[in-house]
Computed example of a mutant assay.
Amino acid sequence: MASYLVTGSSRGLGLALISRLASLPAADVGKIIATARQDNSPQLKEIVDASSGRVEIVKLDVTNKLSVQEAANLVEGKLHGKGLDYLVNNAGLMDRSPDGLAGMDNLDDIFHTNVTSVHNVTQAFLPLLRKGKKKIVINISTTLGSFAKAEIYRQSPTPAYKITKAALNMLTVQYAQQYEPDGFTFLAVTPGWLRTDLGSSRADLPVETGAEKVVDILQQTGPHQNGKFVNIHVPGWENPLGNNQYDGQEVGW
């Protein structure tokens, strides 16, 4: 029974990931730690109440190093001496700047949440991951952070989001390179354009589909994908009209 921890679990993709994990057999998915800045999400509490103790909420503000360390200490106790198998760094922010770089006045805040906080969370949970059997860390990224696809997304008014997700991809590679000898797998995953508060109702896919496909990647990945940037696979979306494809392949950096 593998253990999982997901940041940003109170809504959107994070909430859907917790719901998906909780729906899988206990023989495959054991303890599920749902972390969020606020621990009062009604939807998350419903999942917890129906989980027979498999899902637990831990308060965690990824932007606050003291909160991160306190959460790591709490999770260590909840695992009862066992390690953490999977860490999903999902918490993140998106900007909207119709004026482009001229209107980008929040780069520091978004960089701190999307990059520095991922580093701080990963660093804090490394001791528990070392004790885990899987040692897998998934960083939720986006094709908007791809240099190779920059021209495709030229018109998207989210410069800070693009910049910080590109930096997150490099952070993923740095961790992958350093911790590969210790048996870790670090992977950047784009979950698709999802119908969430962040993605909007105009997005391509239901959030449940994105969560299902991310969990598929989680459970199928291993050292052979260390340091990769991969797309989800949604049948029928391999070559659609428009900017977005979900073909399960590596994404160009």
Rank of each mutant, 00 (worst) to 15 (best):
A26S: 14
R96T: 15
N90W: 02
Y4M: 05
H233S: 09
A188R: 04
S141E: 10
T196S: 11
S156K: 13
D95R: 06
A71K: 12
Y179Q: 08
V207T: 15
I33N: 00
L87I: 00
V234R: 06
T185I: 02
Q219V: 13
L194A: 11
A34K: 01
T209D: 06
A22T: 13
V29F: 06
Y4S: 07
G8E: 02
S23K: 10
G222S: 09
H112K: 12
L60E: 11
T142K: 11
Q178A: 09
E238A: 10
S67K: 08
L84P: 03
G145C: 00
Q177D: 05
F125T: 07
T209Y: 07
I138V: 15
H233P: 00
P181G: 01
K228S: 14
G210W: 10
Y179H: 10
P159T: 06
R20F: 14
P157R: 09
A34E: 01
G248A: 00
A2S: 04
F147V: 04
N120E: 14
K31T: 07
L198C: 02
G100W: 11
I163A: 13
R37G: 13
G145M: 03
K149C: 01
T209V: 15
L13Y: 13
E70L: 08
A203D: 06
H224R: 13
S19T: 15
S41Q: 05
R130K: 13
L241W: 15
R54N: 04
I18G: 11
D99V: 01
R202F: 01
Y4P: 06
N89A: 08
K134W: 05
T116F: 09
I163D: 06
G83C: 02
G248C: 00
S51K: 05
V230S: 02
V58Y: 00
S10P: 01
S9I: 03
M170V: 13
Q219G: 14
I136C: 10
T185Q: 07
I110K: 12
F186P: 02
S19A: 15
G92V: 07
T142P: 07
L15G: 10
I138N: 09
K59Y: 00
V115P: 07
I152T: 15
K82M: 03
L79C: 13
R154L: 09
F184V: 03
N231L: 06
N40R: 12
A50M: 12
A36W: 05
N90K: 05
I136G: 09
V121S: 07
L198N: 00
E208H: 09
L60K: 05
